[in-house]
Design a protein around this nucleic acid. Structure first.
Lengths: 131, 131
DNA sequence: ACGCAGCGTTACGCTTACGTAAGCTTCGCG
DNA sequence: CGCGAAGCTTACGTAAGCGTAACGCTGCGT
């Protein structure tokens, strides 16, 4: 479990993704599994990245956006320009996320209100049906 | 502005969408503009729905999910089964949104932390470059 | 009357994020 | 030794969400 390497199957079971998905992410340079022969071996770093990828997806980021953000979590030392770019990008995303948090609260409040209205309509419908 | 009807162009300018998008949403039965001849006239109801659509999209819901949720905001009176379905769906989405809110806070905290780390690395890089 | 800007329909195109099938290699097991 | 499961590569298929012609009708300013 906490071993250094995980096979593709272990990855799939752990993170509920398909082999295709992992290979796809590798082809898009989001993951960099090592090889034993031609079998993929996923490292701890790959697992950390995958978690971030899946989380990013849940918040509607595209894989390309996520790829760029990952540079922030795995900074390529000695590459100042890239670090600066990743930092800027991260700050922009942070603003976006904070704005979203506010809107999310509104959406939740809205939905709750509508559900109340709906429940009342449903209750009224039941009454008028005189069950 | 607050008039009853809006032309497709007014809608586009107001909500920053293309005509194609509005026609597409109509074809998917998310909007139901009236007609004057063959020109579309968008009602207040359409505008309310469009706002919800755009908001739903920002939170990663598919147009199909949104379409079903809209029934909650525009209940088809006298259709109890549909109202119940919309209500259940809404409650499920509410749970989802509340879970997301929690995760969003984590993501924000995480990102902030990484940005701090990144800034320190950048500062160190500047120092070692002895500018 | 003329021209063209704006709306409408139809339909094919394109991108993202994988699904799925085909065909080859490899590894473990009876 | 044989073979079936699992992995790999290559490549075509697919659904969602519009973009982008192509072509026709219409109203309006000159």
């Amino acid at each position: 479990m906490t071993e250094t390497y995980m096979t593709i199957r272990e990855m799939c079971d752990t993170y509920e993704v398909t082999p295709r998905t992992l290979r796809f992410y590798e082809s898009k340079e989001l993951l960099f599994p090592e090889r034993q022969g031609n079998r993929r071996l996923f490292t701890k770093r790959d697992r950390a990245r995958l978690k971030l990828i899946l989380r990013g997806k849940r918040f509607g980021f595209s894989l390309e956006e996520i790829r760029q953000l990952l540079d922030l979590y795995n900074p390529v030392q000695n590459n100042l320009p890239q670090m600066l770019k990743a930092s800027d990008l991260g700050k922009a995303h942070l603003k976006d996320l904070e704005a979203r948090r506010i809107e999310l609260d509104e959406v939740i409040a809205d939905l709750k209100r509508q559900l109340d209205v709906g429940d009342k309509l449903i209750a009224a419908a039941h009454l008028s049906a005189a069950e």
